[in-house]
Amino acid sequence: MEMKNNTVEVNHIRKAYGNRAVVNDLSFVVKPGEIFGLIGPNGAGKTTTIRMMMDIIKPDSGEVKILGETLTEGAKNNIGYLPEERGLYKKLSVIDSIIYFASLKGVDAKTAGKRAEELLKRVDMIGHRQKKIEELSRGMGQIIQVIVTIIHSPQLIILDEPTASLDPVNAQLLKEIMLDLRKQGKTVIMSTHRMNEIEEMCDRILMINKGRLVLYGDIPSIKAKYRNNSVLIEFQGELGEIPGVTEKRPHDHAVELMLDNKTTPQMVLETLVHKRINVNRFELSTPSLNEIFIKVAGDERE
């Protein structure tokens, strides 16, 4: 496989139920070996987008290419998918569940059994291999789901809200597994509400709202784009009047100075030095992804 090709190419897909477009003219690519975050408020169309990528729902128009081709039954064997709504057969044992779902991905029982042992050891659940799914705790069940998702060693892993019902310990375990996958050169797509996870894990993100693309790219450039023209300072002394500052917003121990279009942070710093104000902290205030998320989602609502 040529690694230069995009792992996923989504071109102008659209899906409507009745008159309501759930996904509207959405295009993006996912590159090999990256962790790609898919974010957006509830009902933004994340799950519908993922289902169209998995060929579970057909788009009304547009196309999805995975690993260079439109998705065929065989190509599904190269993808591991953890849906948002997920579960296993309650009466089946852990090991039988893993082997059955692996067989549906084209892996023979012996290989699946061997790999299942490895993965169960990795997550410290080897002792539970013969237990029925219904005997496991919810968090343990979720981890087994993750194993089912990657048991066939897929090239692309799609995780829809993977940490939604995990406790912090299991969530950490899952993050480690995802980072492992990236190390192995796999491509991971995850959708989530949790912005801290996105900042921690993702190389690039796509934010959609009402089925449309609103943010797309790597995190530093998105942050740069949404940076307020402001600086955060901690100081001793009297600030007084500073040219180009339109507003002073008090924070805990600091003040945020909002600048007009003509003023740069450099000019403010010069003024402060000139005024002999004792500056303990001076930083460009970058918004968190969370703030950008709320701002963009809010703007869309208006």
Binding site: I56, K76, Y81, R86, L88, Y89, F101, L104
Partner: peptide, 13 residues
Amino acid sequence: ENRVMEILLSSVS
């Protein structure tokens, strides 16, 4: 009810 369906559909039609 078990939500197995979508996992199945990611492997088979």
